[in-house]
């Protein structure tokens, strides 16, 4: 326990130094003007446009909307995955079906189904949510499924021995036992949901009133506000880092790492 804090601290410091280094290289490269500044802006102009977009309030509103879309899409995906895993757990036949469906659909990039989703659901937030759902549901099911199957039979029997059955057994033994996999699934699902939300809005289907960060970047591209495009990317990166560091790592340290359930 004692060695952990300096380790994380060192990691953070190391990462920060690396990022600062990359940023300095960027700024120097941009100042050489080897590339058209319209396409490769200086970081200083990127940050000043980012701050002005934040001040105008648009970028945060877009971010909020993106997060809302992801919350709904990912939430539905989690519910779907839970149901699918529950069904798969209840019968081997359904388990085979779920595995077949996963084998077929898991490799499909979420964005590739957008044209069909637009045909079925039309344009608008519901389509983006559907793409987010589609992108995140497979890693969730796969990991939940593997996780539940990886719980040692002994632990299930111990649970039964002390009088647990049905939902209680799943809740008190299977879910915590599968938690390392569940956490991995959530991480992948979150990443894919982010990617899908931004990508879907850039391809099409987003609209002025109901667009998130993807739409913001898309629009800025067409108005040639390239520093703002980079600003949008920076917001995406920062949110990704915050969620990874403050949410997933926080959970991981308090659960699977404390329980010694990681392979690290």
């Amino acid at each position: 326990m004692r060695t952990e804090r300096p380790k994380t601290f060192n990691k953070t410091l190391n990462q920060s130094l690396f990022i600062i280094g990359v940023m300095i290289c960027w700024e120097l490269l941009a100042r050489t003007r080897w590339f058209p500044p319209l396409l490769f802006p200086q970081l200083t102009s990127v940050f000043s446009s980012l701050f002005s977009e934040i001040a105008k309030g648009e970028i945060l509103g877009r971010l909020y909307f993106s997060l809302y879309l992801i919350a709904v899409g990912l939430g539905l995906a989690i519910i779907t995955a839970a149901c699918a895993a529950a069904l798969a757990l209840s019968s081997n036949l359904i388990s085979d079906w779920v595995q077949t469906v996963m084998a077929i659909l898991h490799p499909l990039p979420g964005i590739s189904v957008l044209p069909i989703i637009i045909l079925w659901l039309g344009t608008g937030p519901q389509s983006i949510m559907a793409v987010i759902w589609f992108s995140s549901v497979w890693p969730l099911i796969t990991n939940l499924h593997t996780g539940l199957r990886s719980v040692p039979a002994t632990q299930i029997e111990v649970g039964k021995n002390y009088g647990l059955k049905g939902v209680g057994l799943v809740w008190k033994v299977s879910i915590p036992g599968a938690f390392p996999h569940i956490l991995t699934g959530l991480r992948i699902a979150w990443a894919r949901a982010w990617q899908a939300s931004v990508a879907a809005e850039m391809v099409f289907g987003a609209s002025g009133g109901e667009g998130g960060l993807g739409w913001f970047i898309y629009k800025k591209r067409f108005f040639m506000e390239i520093p703002s495009v980079f600003g949008g990317l920076i917001v995406i990166i920062i949110v990704g880092l915050i969620v990874e560091r403050l949410c997933f790592e926080w959970i991981e340290v308090r659960t699977v790492r404390r329980w010694g359930m990681t392979s690290e």
Partner: peptide
């Protein structure tokens, strides 16, 4: 049916729940 009048001790070391402390493994039961 399984019951606490017959409790089993297994050979496997993984019979304890890794997500509970030692005390919680017992108070859980």
């Amino acid at each position: 049916r399984p019951g606490i009048d017959r409790t089993m001790v297994f050979q496997n070391f993984d019979q304890l729940f890794p997500w509970y402390t030692i005390r919680k493994n017992i108070t859980f039961a």
